[in-house]
Design a protein around this nucleic acid. Structure first.
Lengths: 226, 226
DNA sequence: CGACGGACTGAACACGCGTATAGCGTCCTG
DNA sequence: CAGGACGCTATACGCGTGTTCAGTCCGTCG
């Protein structure tokens, strides 16, 4: 290999062995989950298992490095299509763009297993949704909510969770075709989602009004009242 | 112990050692996931690890037994509150009733990890939702959809997925308090959900109409057209 | 030019896991 | 009352895992 000894402060986009290992790990983790053997990652990177430890110290630290790198990639993805597919469509873009398939698979695995990246990613999404919804409300194309942050979080959890669950319950045979499965999922839910978003599905305001009345009165044994 | 030797065809509700092991397994699997060591289950059931194998042959067969038992419990739960909390509220009941906490935790783990029970459970939920929505449409309290099965599946995936994701991203410290966390989650999403269900959140029909137009025309490179 | 340092390997270690096996006690059965 | 069957335990085996270690190669620096 040409590497020689790598410069200490490896920056973002280098093809050093260390980066190759990290990329292989992102791929494997995304495909097979975080239980995947270290030796499999090593083999994928054409490297011995010991070297992985030599570079990252620990499997968990390797995962942390992956988390960080994936988060960077997401930030890049977000800038790549600033305005082109803003707000609600960014998730769709990330999920179905072949280019980001490994990153998205890794994110999905993180959401499935939990951990810091999952929480960070959801928070990111919620913050974006808040902004996006606020713009929509200001422009008059989105109806305001009585609790904007709660709505943003609800919408993010729902759409993200639906996708996650769809992939978990009916996992792709060829793990490479996650993007294709995601496209199928999006196709399947777009119509009912748009229906719900524009028409709702309750014909009366009764349930909502009753709930609003309920929360305005002190509930009989409330545990927390925001 | 008093057991003697158990009758061969153990029915549903017996307190034989076999049942005790199964219950302990349901609890552990629900709490700690399916990666939990067999010996932990054995200890919980006050039993040696070998006995677990003796009764179930294999860890995976133990899980299958758990799947079956949990599915039975769910069927019982559904009959318990027939009419009391029908349709959309059954999930809420199952999730927040202390009595079914272990069962629900197990279901959630299954949805997280995938597997046969997860698919069966989702299908169950979808079928119920189809019926429930049809009744609502007939009664005039729910607006009809252009694709009822798709809507039912979408609603189930969304609410189930939202709950799953909420628990995964922000897991309960004390794994016993899953019901409490679920109540908090339901509290947090009820308002935005009801808002969305009764008012939608788009002020114009533009997106929906454009999509309907789009799907009525042959898409440029359609992969499947139902 | 010699020696230091780091990338890198292959073998080995320690550990936890699921499972197999041998044996023990006790109850039903003939 | 003998005998077999079954519930059950304790121990051991084999395997796969993450991690460690001694050693080799090679570029760089004094």
């Amino acid at each position: 290999m040409r590497s020689g000894h790598a410069p200490r402060g490896v920056s973002a986009d280098d093809l050093t062995t260390r980066a190759r290992i990290r990329d292989a790990a992102v791929l494997r983790f995304g495909r097979d989950g975080f239980g995947t053997p270290l030796r499999a990652i090593a083999t994928d990177a054409a490297v011995s298992a010991g070297l992985v430890i030599h570079h990252f110290g620990t499997k968990e630290r390797l995962r942390e490095a992956c988390d960080e790198h994936v988060l960077d990639q997401i930030r890049h993805a977000k800038q790549d299509n600033l305005g082109e597919a803003s707000g609600g469509r960014f998730l769709e873009y990330l999920a179905t763009a072949e280019q980001f398939a490994p990153v998205f698979a890794y994110v999905l695995r993180s959401l499935q297993h939990g951990g810091p990246l999952a929480a960070t990613f959801v928070d990111h999404m919620v913050r974006d949704a808040v902004d996006y919804l606020a713009e929509g409300v200001a422009a008059g194309v989105i109806v305001p909510s009585r609790d904007e942050p709660a709505r943003a979080r609800y919408l993010v959890l729902s759409s993200l969770g639906a996708g996650l669950l769809a992939m978990t319950v009916d996992p792709p045979r060829d793990p490479t075709d996650l993007a294709a499965m995601m496209r199928r999922h999006v196709d399947a839910i777009t119509l009912p989602a748009l229906e719900l978003y524009t028409e709702g599905f309750l014909t009366t305001r009764r349930m909502l009004d009753e709930y609003l009345l309920y929360v305005s009165d002190p509930p009989p044994a409330g545990e927390h009242a925001p």
